[in-house]
C-alpha cells in the first residue's frame, strides 16, 4: 500500500464527510425552505465525494472492507480532516463563513487535482469540481447578502469570521505527505494557489463589508489526527447506529 496516497485520500474523503455531516444537521432547521434544500444538496454532493475517496482508500487497504468501515469504525484521532470543517454550525452566518472558506479553497484545489497523475483521483476531482463551483458561488452570495443585510446579520457574519479565520492557515500548509505527492504530480502544492485564494477571499470580504485580517501562524494539525473537541461529539451522532447495530441494513 502506498502510505502517502492512502493518507491523502483519507484527508480528502474526511473533509467532505465531516462537512457533509455538519450540513445535514441543518436539515429541517434552515431559515427558509430554499436554504434548507441548498444545504442538504451541498451535504449530498460532499457525501458523494467522501464515498468515492474513501472507497478508493479502502481498496488499497486489505484491513478495511469499504468506505463505510472507514466512516463508521474509526475514532476521532484516526480522522484526517482539517479543523475548519468540524467546527459547529453556530448560527446561519457561522455556517456560511465556514462553507465559503472551505468551498473556495476546495474549488481551487480540485481544479488542479483534476489533472492528477493518479487517474482515479483525477476522475473523482473532475466530477466533483463541477458541483463545488455551485457551493463556492452559493456561499459567496450569502456572505455578501449577510454582510450588506442588517446590522444584526453583519454582526453575526463578523462573529463567524472571527471564529473560523484562525483555521484557514491549516488549508495552506503542505507536510511531508503532500510533498511526496506533489513530487509525483499526484497532488498540487497548496502554495501554488494561495495568492488566488487570498484574492478571492479579499474580493468577497470587500463586497460583504468585512476586513481581511492577516493570517495567523498555523497551529492546527487535524491532518495528523489532532482535532478540536467538536469532532468527538459529531462522531457520536454519526457513528451511533452502525456501532450499536453492526450488521444493520437499510
Amino acid at each position: 500500500m502506498e502510505r502517502a496516497l492512502y493518507d491523502y485520500l483519507l484527508r480528502r474523503g474526511d473533509d467532505s464527510l465531516i462537512l457533509s455531516q455538519r450540513l445535514s444537521e441543518w436539515c429541517g432547521h434552515a431559515p427558509t425552505i430554499e436554504v434548507d434544500l441548498s444545504l442538504a444538496n451541498l451535504g449530498l454532493d460532499l457525501l458523494g465525494q467522501a464515498t468515492l475517496f474513501l472507497d478508493y482508500a479502502a481498496s488499497m487497504n486489505a484491513d478495511v472492507h469499504n468506505a463505510d468501515a472507514l466512516a463508521f469504525h474509526r475514532d476521532a484521532a484516526e480522522f484526517r480532516n482539517c479543523l475548519l470543517v468540524e467546527q459547529p454550525n453556530g448560527d446561519f452566518a457561522q455556517t456560511i463563513v465556514r462553507q465559503f472558506l472551505y468551498s473556495t479553497w476546495q474549488k481551487m484545489l480540485f481544479d488542479r487535482l483534476a489533472f492528477s497523475k493518479d487517474p482515479t483521483v483525477a476522475a473523482i476531482a473532475a466530477k466533483a469540481v463541477k458541483e463545488i463551483s455551485y457551493h463556492a458561488d452559493l456561499s459567496a452570495d450569502w456572505m455578501i447578502r449577510l454582510g450588506g443585510g442588517t446590522d444584526e446579520s453583519n454582526r453575526r457574519l463578523k462573529a463567524g469570521v472571527e471564529w473560523m479565520w484562525r483555521l484557514v492557515p491549516e488549508l495552506l500548509v503542505a507536510d511531508e505527505i503532500d510533498n511526496e505527492l506533489i513530487t509525483k504530480d499526484i497532488a498540487p502544492d497548496p502554495a501554488s494557489f494561495e495568492t488566488d485564494f487570498m484574492t478571492k477571499i479579499a474580493e468577497v470580504f470587500a463586497e460583504a463589508g468585512l476586513d481581511v485580517s492577516p493570517l495567523p501562524r498555523n497551529f492546527a494539525s487535524g491532518r495528523r489526527g489532532y482535532h478540536s473537541e467538536h469532532l468527538g461529539h459529531l462522531l457520536c451522532t454519526m457513528q451511533y447506529l452502525p456501532r450499536a447495530y453492526p450488521d444493520a441494513q437499510w
Partner: peptide, 13 residues
C-alpha cells in the same frame, strides 16, 4: 430563478 438548488441535485427552482 428562486434557488439554484431544487428538488434534486440536478435541478434548480
Amino acid at each position: 430563478e428562486l434557488s439554484r438548488f431544487g428538488s434534486t441535485p440536478c435541478k434548480a427552482l
